[in-house]
Design a protein around this nucleic acid. Structure first.
Lengths: 311, 311
DNA sequence: GTCTGTCCATAGCTAATCCCTATGAGTTTG
DNA sequence: CAAACTCATAGGGATTAGCTATGGACAGAC
């Protein structure tokens, strides 16, 4: 009741008076005194330098100017009401937007999460940006994206940046991936040594991607030189090439298992594990859409862990 | 400068901050202090129960809710600006409307005035209503017309109604009007007696019209019985019939002189003079369009008197 | 690391404003 | 003419917007 309205009182009063055709009646409806209306209308007329109401007769009539102005005042009032309502929509997640940044790798791993989110909040406009891993954190700092999804070695438990927070969604192992007709597939080898791995012709992500750096370091640590036949920034290209048969690559197990034509082969010593994590700005405003995503992702992650334990 | 704006300050401030991306910059532009903006935005956010601006980063950013609300706020602000401008337009007489009520007689006499008005204020929508003389005053009282133009005997100097004011535009004498081939025209008679007038076959306005009543009274006073062959409520019909030759009528001199086929013949004793007057509501709002018409008519009237004296 | 400059937020005060009650002026009704 | 109704006006009290002065957070310079 005593909460102020955004809309200027004088305009509200004008609208009410026009509606009731009477100061007295309008004053009752608005729960203010009649002189208040007189005063406010007078001020409005002074501001507009034009009479709006004709009070000479028995009933209050709008002047030409009043009629014209009233139409615009009503529209303005309507706009603010709509705006107020629209904010509610944002809060109950029936509107809003969310910008995700991720790599081609995590794209494959979390599109299920994305589709769940979209089903749950169909009104939220989702935009995703594929970008190299290293671009994700700057993008968050510069607020170009709301949430990033990264694929990296397990973090040292502490944030590497003071501006961001992270949450581990799940852990993922890397395997050598081969196609249906690949020699190693034919020979039904389940695991190979690092030395054998070094002999494979590989199609790999280029050095823009952190995953590639991790693989290069693994090779360096094992004293092997990988044979990179093709480099690309497209995961689709990699998968297509591997499915053709003669080339191999290194991918997270989930991707390998969900692609019909790919088969995993373990490498000994084990290729490094990686975590898929969300990263977002620590301090600062998080939109309802953003908060909802973080929450959904958290429970989705818990579910996946449980399924893995049960399965 | 110190004149208040209609639009709520908080919304103006929001718009400015969004534009400049900074409280400080917006405050300078608006010539208020920066804490004022902080306070107002805070109140607006409390009212809407939703943050509108994200001040956590280096620059101020709009939140989802802020973006959506801002769009409506801008529209509302635009509407009020348009409304304010529209009122100026009304005052500039580039818009508005004027409703005139008059009789078929005064229609002929003052269409020059009407066309001058229209040339001067082309934005004003003019609507004219032909009506019997007696309907004009009620029409004014009931605000169906803004201004009436009457053709009647000089008023007894005082208003016959307490609700209306009048202004005499000019005075008009009545003459017998005949066509090119009328016997009296052939014999080049300049004046005739009332007795001869009584022998004429007349085409006249019907008794709805005050002019007709005045003529009837004249005849009664002179002890003659007019021979009304045709009665009509259309001045055009009267003029057409008279121009055919055998019939006569009684019309104001201006109409007779401006119609090529009509010729005036004076009657002795003189037919009553009449004044053409404007009549309007005394108390009550007069639109700019109405005031402009009254003013123009007044100077037009003065011009006519002067020309009559010179010519 | 500290220092500095630049943001925006907060506190407390002043001045403008909004709104009220009481009353007056002008019309229409009985 | 009086009664009942309309809106306008006057003056006082509570609310609010705005100011100055200051504090906390953050980025860049040294």
């Amino acid at each position: 009741m005593d909460r102020r309205d955004i809309f200027p009182r004088s305009l509200q009063y004008l609208i009410a008076i026009a509606e009731y055709g009477s100061y007295t009646r309008a004053a009752e409806a608005l729960h203010v005194s009649q002189p208040t209306l007189s005063q406010q209308i007078k001020q409005l007329e002074e501001y507009l330098q034009s009479p709006l109401l004709d009070r000479s007769g028995r009933t209050v009539q709008l002047t030409d100017a009043g009629k014209i102005f009233l139409r615009h005042a009503r529209r303005a009032w309507g706009e603010l009401n709509i705006g107020t309502r629209a904010i509610q929509d944002v809060q109950d997640l029936s509107r809003g937007s969310l910008r995700l940044g991720w790599t081609p790798i995590t794209d494959y791993l979390t599109c299920d999460l994305l589709s769940r989110y979209n089903r749950m909040y169909p009104g939220i406009t989702l935009s995703t940006l594929d970008m190299p891993q290293d671009d994700i954190e700057p993008a968050i700092s510069e607020a170009r994206i709301d949430i990033g999804i990264t694929f990296s070695k397990p973090l040292d438990s502490e944030e590497n940046s003071s501006h961001t927070e992270t949450f581990t969604l799940f852990e993922e192992a890397l395997y050598l991936a081969v196609g249906e007709t690949h020699p190693r597939r034919i020979r039904k080898r389940k695991r190979i040594t690092a030395q054998d791995f070094g002999k494979e012709s590989l199609v790999q992500l280029n050095t823009d991607f952190a995953l590639r750096h991790h693989i290069d370091r693994y090779c360096h640590d094992c004293g092997i030189e990988p044979r990179n036949v093709i480099e690309t920034n497209s995961l689709t290209v990699i998968i297509e090439m591997v499915e053709l048969g003669s080339l191999a690559t290194v991918l997270p197990s989930t991707i390998i298992n969900t692609q019909d034509g790919l088969y995993p082969i373990a490498v000994v010593p084990e290729l490094p594990h990686h975590t898929v994590s969300m990263i977002w700005h620590k301090s600062g405003y998080k939109s309802p859409a953003c908060l909802a995503f973080l929450e959904l992702a958290s429970s989705w992650s818990a579910n996946m862990l449980q399924e893995k334990r049960l399965g």
